[in-house]
């Protein structure tokens, strides 16, 4: 499964990482190398083998439905990023996190 520049652009978009034309070319060659390594898997017959998602065959523990968290908005929002686009203010207002307008 050979990768193309279009594939790189598509996955970069899915991953929301801006990739310039020249970066895309460089990335293509590196990713092609890594995929070449990965391709070794295709030689293995895995028919009937149950996929292994976890190191231990355990089941989910359940938490009692009890409130254990208190409001820490102020502490958390101290880490808010800088708004940008000319503003050096934190990207919060009235307790809300600010982002460019969401269009529906």
């Amino acid at each position: 499964m050979a990768l193309s520049i279009e594939d790189i652009k598509k996955i970069a978009h899915l991953a929301r990482i801006e990739v310039s034309e020249s970066e895309a070319t460089a990335t293509l060659s590196k990713l092609t190398g890594i995929l070449g390594l990965i391709e070794q898997m295709q030689a293995v017959d895995t028919t009937g083998i149950v996929p292994m998602s976890h190191a231990q065959e355990l089941h989910q523990r359940l938490r009692d439905d009890v409130v254990t968290k208190t409001n820490q908005r102020e502490a958390f929002q101290k880490n808010a990023p800088v708004l940008g686009n000319g503003s050096t203010q934190p990207a919060v207002a009235g307790g809300l996190y600010l982002v460019p307008k969401v269009i529906e």
Partner: peptide, 28 residues
């Protein structure tokens, strides 16, 4: 439920913004 599906943060409609958003809710 009293709390969120994956954390012990309370669920109350109409609370002040982000006051019921614990570290799990805001994905620290």
């Amino acid at each position: 439920t009293n709390t969120k599906i994956f954390s012990g943060a309370p669920i109350k409609y109409g609370a002040e913004p982000n006051t019921q958003a614990c570290e799990v809710s805001i994905a620290l």
